[in-house]
């Protein structure tokens, strides 16, 4: 499924940088892997370097690190409550990984790994499995009562339970498609308009202006989608812990 170099979709092509083959599997280190590693390195460097010799009155970088910590901690506390505390590092990792993945991808020439359905779906599935495990570990089989909304007439149970289970199973799909579609649409739009800049000559100013506006909008989308991903993770944990 190769796409032409000139296609706005070409930016999503996964290209092997260091070929690695295990058996029949191609596990090459690709541009996607490179930017994942860059994201992890940047997040770690950001948090560790900014808190080096942590001060009482924080420096600007330390302030930013503390802000991100408090932001996610507050999100977990408000949406999951005190019981959500053990899952804070997980939610924080998800949030930072998606946020940095989204933001780095806006740098021209970089790669948007969060615009890949397989990546977002794997992340969403991780959340889904984690949440389901937490639900079963905390409540045992009583967790299944989550699928029977309280105060429902007995007659409605056979109808409602499959719907509840279906909507539960649909969570990782909606979670991953939302992020994937947003990132992919944004990046495609940027390149579609960028393609017109040179071909229109002087009037190329117009698509350029649109791209400037779009990239600002994409920064907003990048942050917002990371936030949405994290807050939905929190809400799923809240459901699993408190069963509505």
């Amino acid at each position: 499924m190769a796409v032409a170099e000139t296609s706005p979709l070409h930016q999503f092509t996964v290209e092997s940088l260091v070929p690695i083959h295990v058996g029949t599997f191609n596990l090459s280190f690709s541009n996607s892997a490179l930017f994942m590693v860059i994201a992890v390195a940047l997040i770690t460097a950001f948090l560790v370097l900014s808190t080096r010799g942590a001060r009482l009155v924080p420096t600007r970088w330390q302030s930013l690190a503390e802000l991100s910590y408090e932001f996610v901690a507050g999100m977990v506390r408000e949406n999951v409550g005190h019981e959500g505390r053990p899952y804070f590092p997980f939610v924080f990792s998800i949030f930072m990984f998606v946020l940095f993945g989204n933001l780095i991808s806006l740098i021209p020439g970089s790669f948007a790994f969060t615009a890949h359905i397989v990546v977002t779906f794997a992340l969403a599935l991780t959340v889904f499995i984690a949440v389901t495990l937490v639900g079963f570990i905390r409540h045992g089989f009583h967790f299944l009562s989550f699928f029977v909304p309280r105060g429902m007439p007995a007659l409605m149970v056979p109808l409602m339970v499959p719907i509840e289970i279906l909507s539960y199973l649909f969570r990782p799909i909606s979670l991953s498609v939302r992020l994937f579609a947003n990132m992919m649409a944004g990046h495609t739009m940027l390149l579609v308009f960028a393609g017109f800049i040179l071909s229109l000559g002087v009037f190329g100013v117009l698509p350029l202006a649109i791209d400037v506006a779009l990239i600002l909008f994409e920064v907003l989308v990048a942050v917002l989608q990371a936030y949405v991903f994290a807050i939905l993770t929190c809400l799923y944990f809240q459901d699993a812990i408190h069963l509505h």
Binding site: M1, V3, L9, H10, F12, T13, V14, S16, I20, F25, N26, L27, S28, F29, S30, S32, A33, M36, V37, F113, A115, H116, I117, V118, V119, A122, L123, F180, M184
Partner: peptide, 16 residues
């Protein structure tokens, strides 16, 4: 769409 190129899935998943 490169996103649906199943052959790249294993490497993306492993590195993810």
């Amino acid at each position: 769409m490169p996103q649906f190129d199943v052959s790249t899935f294993p490497q993306q998943l492993v590195w993810l």
